[in-house]
């Protein structure tokens, strides 16, 4: 089925594709938060200043949002690296280049492991009882935890989450709710504009401990600190994260492994 290629507006594209892809997508037809295309990707690259990238772990830090453009080849890795090398300096420049290298790393792993990246690459480092599928309260942003529900809504609405939010969400589902990372991978693939087999599957495995030597997990202090207290201020939920790392380690993984010391 061939698509037409002339449109008078973005709305027209949305309506047209809604019909053409009928039955092949989830949710309602709506335009993506980012505009697809080479010119939009260049504008995004040129708008990015690595100056405050040192704060990249904070959810309100100025990260580049280049991932969807890199994923679909509208920007190449080499051109982004070259641009940053020539437009930025110092620690921020180096930190950005290091983060970009994670993507290269994941693609090299994909090249070497192929479809095995969709299965546990290593034994989990704790006795896990992961189940599938992703429960409805998570999918529908009704966990009653304001932070978790906000991550889900943001993911679904914008097709994007900050790296730290992805890590927290993954740790919440895999360790606090004991959902198999493969269900998280599929949920992210459904919604992320940058969703890709390498970075997505391998990051979930990194959190789960099947591609790292310990599971990634966080407590309330960590969420509060890196989100500028965005959700914790005034939160009345029964917070599963409000514990020391040592307590969480025992509760989540069944023993004192010394991962938090």
């Amino acid at each position: 089925m061939e698509f037409k290629q002339q449109f008078s507006s973005r709305e027209e594209i949305t309506t047209y594709l809604g019909q053409m892809f009928k039955g092949l997508y989830t949710g309602e037809p709506r335009a993506p938060a980012l505009h697809g295309g080479r010119s939009a990707s260049l504008a995004q690259l040129e708008a990015f200043k690595a100056k405050n990238y040192g704060r990249r772990n904070h959810t309100n830090a100025p990260v580049s949002r280049l991932s969807a453009y890199l994923r679909h080849g509208q920007l190449s890795m080499l051109e982004v690296a070259e641009y940053i090398r020539s437009h930025s300096q110092g620690r921020e420049r180096d930190e950005f280049l290091k983060q970009l290298t994670w993507r290269d790393f994941f693609y090299l792993v994909l090249e070497q492991k192929g479809l095995k990246v969709l299965e546990n690459l290593e034994e989990p480092k704790y006795p896990m009882r992961w189940v599938q599928p992703m429960p409805d309260d998570i999918l529908e942003a009704r966990t009653n935890l304001p932070c978790v529900d906000a991550w889900v809504s943001k993911l679904v609405d914008t097709g994007y989450l900050h790296n730290h939010e992805r890590l927290w969400f993954a740790a919440y589902t895999v360790h606090f709710r004991q959902i198999h990372w493969q269900a998280g991978f599929a949920f992210f693939r459904e919604h992320l504009l940058d969703g890709d087999i390498a970075s997505n599957a391998l990051s979930w495995q990194w959190v789960a401990s099947t591609f790292s030597h310990k599971p990634y997990f966080m407590n309330k202090d960590n969420i509060s600190k890196f989100s500028s207290n965005q959700w914790c201020a005034g939160c009345r939920a029964k917070c599963p994260f409000d514990k020391t790392y040592q307590t969480l380690e025992r509760e989540l993984f069944g023993a004192d492994y010394g991962w938090s010391s």
């Binding site: 949710g27 335009a31 993506p32 697809g36 992320l192 504009l193």
Partner: peptide
């Protein structure tokens, strides 16, 4: 696959 990704690729 949610719809926005399809439009992003199409654009």
């Amino acid at each position: 696959m949610a719809f926005p990704r399809l439009q992003f690729m199409f654009e």
